[in-house]
């Protein structure tokens, strides 16, 4: 079973997901593990990954998304592809996912707030999707947009951020083999609080780059605006690469707390590019990472 079946089984998943989002309420996804992309570390529990979230569309508390996201309707869902590309238009989620074989990858995730997890995602490389739409030579960046629907997303009635949430990547970052579009975790359909039905995962960047519940992908010539950068430009940059040497203005980024670890061993050092430096440091070779944080 690949992505093609996800559209069908996902319906059952979201219907059942109205109750407590236990793992068993979510439809299963079969996705072979891609051994090249498996962090050899203890995985964070399903319970922690799905109950400790930053998803301000559903509230600013860590437990708010699990509580408030269950009514989000993830079917029908469509994604608009636009901008500097040969093929553009509005596509159903099923059309978006159909050609892609799903795989499981275990990635570290480092939040800008100094906590981290190890998550077994199910998804496919963003590059494979982007190529289908034939980006032109003017496509220097890729911009993403989250659903904007204050009726379904109560957090959008508050002014914590400008809505909708927007994010972006440079085209080489977007095409990098590590960059993933996720549709599930722990072998099941993505819970709503984790960004269903479609979210971005960029493991060498801070978690806020991983935009959730995506409804639009645009190829642009100019660097697109990004939500946290708009909210506090001196604190959150466009690049947001995990970097223990460049502190957040208000706190050090040299260490992090691993979610689910014991009280006395939670704190560990943060690695450059979240441990993915061998894969991605080359993307930034000539850049001053203090300036382009």
């Amino acid at each position: 079973m690949g992505a093609a079946a996800l559209g069908a089984v996902g319906v059952a998943g979201t219907a059942a997901g109205k109750a407590m989002p236990e793992a068993t309420a979510l439809a299963k996804l079969r996705a072979p593990r891609n051994a090249r992309f498996v962090a050899d570390e203890t995985q964070t529990s399903f319970e922690d990954i799905t109950s400790y979230n930053n998803f301000y569309e559903f509230g600013t508390g860590k437990a708010d998304p699990q509580r408030n996201a269950q009514a989000l309707r993830t079917r029908p869902w469509s994604v608009t592809i636009g901008g500097e590309a040969g093929v553009t238009g509005r596509y159903t989620l099923e059309d978006i996912l159909k050609p892609h074989a799903l795989e499981e990858r275990v990635y570290r995730m480092r939040c800008v707030e100094r906590w981290s997890m190890v998550i077994p995602w199910v998804g496919f490389p963003l590059a494979d999707l982007l190529r289908r739409f034939q980006p032109t030579s003017k496509a220097k960046y890729v911009a993403f947009t989250t659903l904007h629907d204050p009726r379904q997303m109560p957090g959008q009635r508050a002014g914590w951020l400008e809505w909708p949430y927007v994010e972006g990547l440079r085209i080489d970052e977007a095409m990098h083999p590590l960059t993933l579009l996720a549709v599930g975790l722990y072998g099941r359909v993505l819970p709503n609080q984790n960004g269903a039905p479609l979210r971005l995962v960029v493991p060498w960047k801070y978690g806020f780059k991983g935009i959730k519940s995506i409804v639009a992908i645009h190829f642009t010539e100019r660097q697109p605006p990004t939500s946290w950068n708009l909210a506090a430009p001196d604190e959150y940059g466009f690049y947001a690469n995990v970097n223990p040497a460049v502190d957040h203005p208000r706190w050090s980024q040299a260490s992090e707390r691993r979610i689910g670890a014991s009280l006395f061993s939670a704190t560990r050092p943060t690695l450059p590019f979240n441990g993915y430096a061998a894969d991605v440091a080359g993307l930034y070779r000539s850049m001053d990472l203090r300036r382009w944080f």
Partner: peptide, 18 residues
């Protein structure tokens, strides 16, 4: 919560909770 007494937990990020 720290020692799991009476079924209490400190949540996913116990240090932050404390």
């Amino acid at each position: 919560g720290a020692f799991g007494i009476a079924g209490r937990r400190l949540g996913a990020d116990p240090v932050e909770a404390l």
